[in-house]
Amino acid sequence: MPVEWSHPSPQETRHWQLSLWPYRSLLRKDFVLFIGATAALIALPLVAAIGTAVLWGLLPFFALMLSGLWYALHISYRRGEILEELTVDDTTAHLTRHNPAGNIQEWEANRYWISVHIRDDGPVEKYLTLRGNGREVELGAFLTPEERQALHGELMQALSGGR
């Protein structure tokens, strides 16, 4: 699960931070390998056309396909650059969401008045929200329903002081 809990020290359970991010099946370091392998596999049939005019007819389509694939993967990475950080100390809980466009959304509430909810009637299955300070904010919309369900239990335990 793309979730990380952090504590200043193992004895300290009142201060903690939760970081959430979307799952990545293709890492950035593997991106170059994937594009290179795809180019090699697509170029393999072009070897038969070397030295003919057919090669020059097929080459623009090969380049267009490869650049389209690169662009689509690049856009996918940009849209997935989301980071949600929930920081809890003695009195407050602060949620910060870093969006792909670069803007930052923030929410803060009294730690002891926060309630964690999970619903089936939200925009996603097992819709996880935090309520406090007169607002309700979603958490981990990019996670799978099972991950949101597990996170719900962990957040309930953590906010009650057991984490």
Rank of each mutant, 00 (worst) to 15 (best):
P2I: 11
V3C: 12
E4I: 09
W5Q: 08
S6V: 11
S6D: 02
S9H: 14
P10M: 05
P10Y: 06
T13W: 00
R14E: 12
R14G: 12
H15V: 14
L18E: 08
W21N: 08
Y23F: 15
Y23T: 15
L26W: 00
L27V: 12
K29Q: 15
F31K: 10
L33K: 01
F34K: 02
I35T: 00
G36N: 12
G36A: 15
T38W: 00
A39G: 07
A39I: 03
A40M: 15
L41T: 03
L41A: 08
I42T: 10
L44D: 02
L46E: 02
A49W: 06
T52L: 08
V54T: 13
L55C: 10
L55E: 02
W56K: 02
G57E: 04
L58D: 05
P60F: 01
F61P: 06
F62N: 01
F62R: 03
F62I: 05
A63Y: 00
L64G: 01
M65E: 13
S67M: 04
S67A: 07
G68N: 01
L69T: 07
L69G: 06
L69Q: 00
A72R: 10
H74L: 14
S76A: 14
G80N: 09
I82F: 01
I82R: 02
E84Y: 01
L86N: 01
T87K: 13
V88A: 11
T91Q: 08
L95H: 09
H98E: 09
H98R: 05
P100I: 13
A101L: 09
A101N: 15
G102S: 04
G102F: 07
I104G: 04
I104L: 15
R111H: 12
Y112V: 03
V116H: 06
V116S: 07
V116N: 01
I118G: 04
D121Y: 03
K126R: 14
Y127I: 05
Y127G: 05
Y127T: 03
L128I: 09
L128Y: 05
T129S: 07
L130P: 02
E136N: 07
E138K: 05
A141I: 04
L143R: 01
L143W: 01
E146G: 10
R148A: 10
R148E: 06
Q149I: 02
G153E: 11
E154C: 06
L155V: 05
Q157K: 11
A158H: 04
L159R: 04
S160W: 12
S160E: 14
G162K: 05
R163Q: 07
R163A: 13
